[in-house]
Each structure stands twice: as structure tokens, then as C-alpha cells.
Design a binder for these strands. Sequence first.
DNA 1: CGGCCACTATTCACTGAGTGAATAGAGGTC
DNA 2: GACCTCTATTCACTCAGTGAATAGTGGCCG
Lengths: 178, 178
Amino acid sequence: MSTSHVLLGLLAGGPRHGYELKRSHDDRLPQAKPLAFGQVYATLGRLERDGLVEQSGQDRDGGPDRTSYVITEAGRARLGEWLTEVEPPAPYVTSALFAKVVVSLLASGERVATEYLVAQRAAHTTRLRELTAVKTDSAATVGDVIAADYAIAHLDADLRWLQTTLLRLADLNEEMNP
Amino acid sequence: MSTSHVLLGLLAGGPRHGYELKRSHDDRLPQAKPLAFGQVYATLGRLERDGLVEQSGQDRDGGPDRTSYVITEAGRARLGEWLTEVEPPAPYVTSALFAKVVVSLLASGERVATEYLVAQRAAHTTRLRELTAVKTDSAATVGDVIAADYAIAHLDADLRWLQTTLLRLADLNEEMNP
DNA sequence: CGGCCACTATTCACTGAGTGAATAGAGGTC
DNA sequence: GACCTCTATTCACTCAGTGAATAGTGGCCG
């Protein structure tokens, strides 16, 4: 998704090689999923192909050769666009929770769907408590708090949805399996 | 992601061929992203390879040949698992909004990040109003309402996050660019 | 001194998700 | 009979992501 933009953003701070990019990614965005090395080099390859970065020479410093990349003018332009564009609020509902409820009603009936909703609500509630604890942890950085906030807000959104969907499940079943 | 499970779910209602699956998917989950044909056949291929579905013969009915698939016992078992498993609340924060704010601070500074947050808030607010209208539309089905609810809950979560992040942006900037 | 381990750095082979265009049969229509 | 439309499948391709393999260098320990 936006991995390439994130790499461009890291490269905006100066030339870097792949290994370094992986580490500064995991470092700067510790609450995001760690990047795999393979993915870093593959993405760099695409960025280079598209003229958004360039190799800025090889060097070596007590270890194997390494290839540094710099961001190009086109790269800066692309990064600038991404940073100012708003993310289009998704036109589609792509949620495993939603899909599961619908498929459940189609394939197994209302009882299974209800059980699922109840179980999912319990799991979310547990996770919500854990995240709340992270937030009040005194060792938490501002970044940690903001990330936790994001997760909390969405867990809470799911929970409210799970609740109202439970209440409407009989109606939905009626509509789908008349 | 869960496309294969959704297809299994549709096949649980009886044998279907690819074209039919695409249509009943788009029909049953109208608020989800339409499936591309290519994806249906590719997914069916994987399901067959894994023994979760089987070809149940060819037939023809005023048109080209078509190949029907049935769900196998293993397929039903797999579907049953999926329907009862809770979705693990994501351990990582994989959000374009979050990533953009962090990268923005790294690469362009607080002003650009602020402008982004404000613009994104406006876009979300607009979309939220549209969705609220969908909900009160008298033609809305229960499915539509539940889907709109999902989207609304998450837009609202984003909005609250955007708001609190705006307030904390100076602190975050301080932490990241000391 | 030789062997091994840890760290740095990159590559490779593979799977899965998804897109868009191409192909092809059958029936209807003007 | 040329063409259009609907049904049905396939193909070629890109991107994202994983896990293992490869390879160079320095440090440490027996």
C-alpha cells in the first residue's frame, strides 16, 4: 500500500541503503508491522524503475558492499503529493467482521452468527483493556499513545458495531433468508 | 484476504460455477468491492488445489461450457472454522492516516502535517454526512444500514483520532525531531 | 592461529491478491 | 449474414509480502 511512500519519506532525510531503511522504518514506526528485507529491496527496485530514487554509489564500511539510494526531484514531488492528498474515505466496506456475519447467515444460520458476534465482542473487549493499559504506561512515548489511540478508537468502533448488529441480526436474517 | 472463505460460504449453498459466484457475491455483499472474474477463477483454482472444492462436472445452457464446483467435506470444515474463529484484533497499526502523519513530520515538518490533518478531517466529515443520509434513506435494506453503520463507526473513530492527534502534534513533533 | 559466531547487506524463489484485456460460444435483431 | 449482447473462462501482468539462502567482515575463544 503506502510502503513505497514511507520509504520515499525516509529517503527525504538523505541517502540511505536498504538495510538502513528497514531499520529506520521499524524504528520510526515501531507500532507498524516490521518491514521484511525482501520487501525493502523490491520496493526500492520499483522506485528506481519509476525514477523516484537513484543509486548514489556503493561503499563499504566494515562489512559487505552496500548500495545507497537518493530521492530524485520526481521522488520529492511524488512524496509531496502523497503528503498533501487526503486519503479517500473507503467507498467499500472491506471488513472481515462484516463479511463473516453475512456469510454466516447464508451458510450456517442465525445461531452461529450470534455466537460469533458474542465471541468477537469478548475478544475486542479484552484487547481494548490491554491497549488502555499501554496508554497509561508511564514509559509510553507520544508516538505510542497516538498509535494506541488509533487502535482504541477503531476497536471501540467495532464494538459499537458488534453491539448494534447483534440487535439487528434477526432482521438481517429475515432479509437474507426469507 | 477472506475472499476464499466468502466463496466457500457461497458454495455451501450448493454447486456453482465461477460466473455465478461472481454475481452472487456482488449480489449478497453489494457494499463490498465487486469481485473481478479473474480473481474468482484464480481463487477457485487455489481452493481446488487445496481440496476444499471439487469440480462437479461441466454443463451448458445456451452459452459456452461451464464448470461447476462443489464444496468438499474439508471445505465445510474450513468454513466452519472460519465462521467460529474470532478475528484477532490487529496487533499492528496499519493505517495510511497514521503513517502519513509520521512521515509528514519526518520529511516536511509540522505545518504540512497540520494541514493534512485538517484537510483529512474535512473529507471525513463530508463522507460521514453522506453515509448518514444513506441510513435514513427509506429504500435502505437492513444490509445497507448495517454496512453504513460499520463505515460510520470507523469514520467517526478516525475523526476522533484526527482531532486528538491535532492537539498532540506539537508534542509528537518534539519527540520525533528533537 | 583456526574455527565459529554475530552482524551487516543483498538476493532469490515463491505465494497470493488483484487488474484488465482477450477469447469464445450462443442467441437475438435488423 | 453481419453485428451485438450475454454468458463463461483464461491469460498475462503487477504488486505485496515471506522465508530462506548467500556472502563479506570483524571479534572472540580455545
